[in-house]
Write a protein that binds this DNA or RNA. Structure first.
Lengths: 352, 352
DNA sequence: CGTTATTTTGATAATAGTCAATCAGGGTGG
DNA sequence: CCACCCTGATTGACTATTATCAAAATAACG
């Protein structure tokens, strides 16, 4: 399907990865060190490069650096293979222009997912020039200019994601603004000891990833789908152009930012001083607010305990214990994994 | 100095407060219930009203409601006296248009401070029309338009605040954007059990209070000076006009919002999973970043332990213990209350 | 110089995290 | 169809961390 260049010095891993890639019909070139890798990249011009970080002669960073300099190879997507211990250098790597990273040990599916996502990115890459109507307001005031954002959305590529797929990772360079056509997305940050904390939950018609586009150099959180999700990818450039041109768009995003900020501050206060019970109650309530289907009194949350814990910001076991407490107090009910909120009102009372 | 209407049913408090007010030369009118208060307000048209919340006949909310309806009395600043237990209704009150509140039991100085601040507000109130040059870009491109924000700052009233004075309180209606000419300000939120958590630290040339102006209906945090501070008060209307007119101003604040948001997210992760040591180290480091005088290696922090604790988000005693630990580890030194950061580098290492 | 506030220390309790074991459901291959 | 395995959920026992309360020491202030 695609030409993949694999740079890896460890023989076991190299053969293993090469096999996986061959199995799904990719054409694989292998290099056992950085120098070889660079040469091969220039000669074969692969569609994507997967490279180890720690290697003799030139390490992964070096390879990336060299290839990014040469216009002929600078656009090839680059994925790092790295072990946990080197994770701290990853931000550095992403800044150099890597597109993704995979932490060893990894599953074949992780690798293939990452590969697929990055290849997809590129296929979208040849950024369509914006419909000229959108750029020229005076021309078509009635249709396009009424909602330039809508216009842009209609003109952008969309992409389908399965469950638990990663949209972008912490440390990567933001290249799109994402709009959720359908599905759910959460963004989270990882703490050093492996615990995650969910920063935001998004649903249909939400924009994801605007903050780093407006300010940051790289993503500060990871975005992952929670179920099958269809996203519209709005290239950074187009978004910037839009913001530049339409004050109302700017205003809209300023509002989003401000609201988000105020919400975060509230969360911060809670994270610092709330008891476990309150944290859990707060997580349940906010989930309800985000995803509840209209007016229904009793809503149901279907989510793994792990995920819930990373929303509440607590250990999984502690979360479970609190949930059982809540159950005994008839605030919630649990049937086959799902959590039914029975007494939303009392739950909210807990938060005062 | 000013005409003050005091509405309070409890005789002890009434007499006590009246005495304090008389002592500082205010002309005091007293009412012992809401009905009387309303009448007196309409008749005497005081400069400011101080009213209890819980009262027979009409309660404080009622009084406020009635007076806000009548244009003749609607602009009179209104301060509530309230006990802790009623605190939950305060947001409601502020939304109705109260300007401040004081929680019983209170010190005479609290009362006088609040009074003074609110009286000052009004004196500034007759909003100066913006220099027409600022509104009309084409007119004076070179000077005014180069930095419309600067222009506005030059045209706005400024105010001096002493140490530990409150600029605005959580729940009040935002009416100004503040710019710090000199001094330091912190904003914090209060948790129900009385513990505070510092949200932001501001120094010279910082803007304070922009988020609620852009989005919220009322202040979500309290702003307090940390030392003698000179502020420029930019009326909400003028700020909005500016944002409306100058994309570059909008952009600037959008940047501020976005940066602030990313920072908050980082803090959130820390608040959820960091150990005490890390929280304290993080507080010290960020204080250094904000207030350090240029390149100096060893900076010094002079701040009460209480305040520090509310930055780190921990109990005062826990903070102190951690500080002593740090001292033994030669990361910091403490001399007469001040904290000297000796080994900033190692302190930052703690955060990884 | 006495008095009050703040800081520090000590002892104790509460809370939530960790690690290990068990349980329940769902899918798989024989 | 059933034993088996694997994963995620739950429970139990224990521990570590940090808050709390009280008391002592120190600084601050009039």
């Amino acid at each position: 399907m695609a030409k993949v260049l694999l740079i890896e010095d460890d023989e076991d891993i190299r053969l293993n990865v090469a096999e996986i890639l061959t199995l799904v019909n990719h054409e694989v070139f292998v290099a056992t060190n950085g120098r070889e890798g660079v040469d091969l990249a220039k000669k074969e011009h692969p569609d994507i490069i997967v490279s180890d970080v720690m290697m003799p002669l030139i390490d992964g960073f070096g390879v990336l650096h060299v290839l990014k300099k040469d216009p002929a190879t600078s656009t090839i997507p680059f994925i790092f293979l790295t072990s946990k211990s080197e994770a701290c250098n990853l931000r550095e790597a992403m800044r150099l222009g890597a597109n993704d990273y995979i932490i060893k040990p990894f599953e074949g599916s992780d690798l293939l997912n990452a590969l697929e996502t990055r290849l997809k990115d590129v296929s979208v890459q040849p950024v369509k020039e914006l419909n000229p109507n959108t750029a020229d307001i005076s021309h078509s005031l009635d249709k396009a200019a009424t909602d330039p954002m809508q216009e842009l959305l209609n003109n952008c590529e969309s992409a389908e994601y399965g469950k638990k797929q990663i949209i972008y990772k912490e440390g990567s360079t933001p290249r799109y603004l994402y709009f959720i056509k359908s599905g759910k997305v959460r963004t989270y940050k990882s703490h050093e000891d492996g615990k995650d904390l969910v920063m935001n939950l998004y649903g249909k018609n939400d924009f994801v990833g605007y903050a780093p586009l407006l300010e940051g150099v790289f993503q500060v959180e990871t975005a992952e789908t929670m179920e099958d999700t269809e996203l519209i990818l709005i290239p950074k450039k187009d978004f910037e152009k839009l913001v530049e041109q339409y004050p109302e768009v700017t205003k809209k995003f300023m509002g989003l930012l401000a609201r988000n900020l105020l919400e975060k501050e509230e969360q911060l206060l809670g994270a610092a001083y709330n008891t476990l019970r309150k944290k859990v109650a707060s997580a349940l309530v906010s989930l309800g607010r985000k995803y509840k289907i209209e007016q229904e009194q009793n809503y149901i949350i279907i989510m793994s305990r792990d995920e819930l814990a990373s929303i509440a910001g607590t250990a999984t076991e502690s979360l479970i214990r609190t949930l059982t407490d809540f159950k005994h107090e008839r605030l919630i009910d649990m049937k086959n994994g799902g959590i039914v909120i029975i007494d939303q009102h009392k739950l909210q009372q807990l938060l005062r």
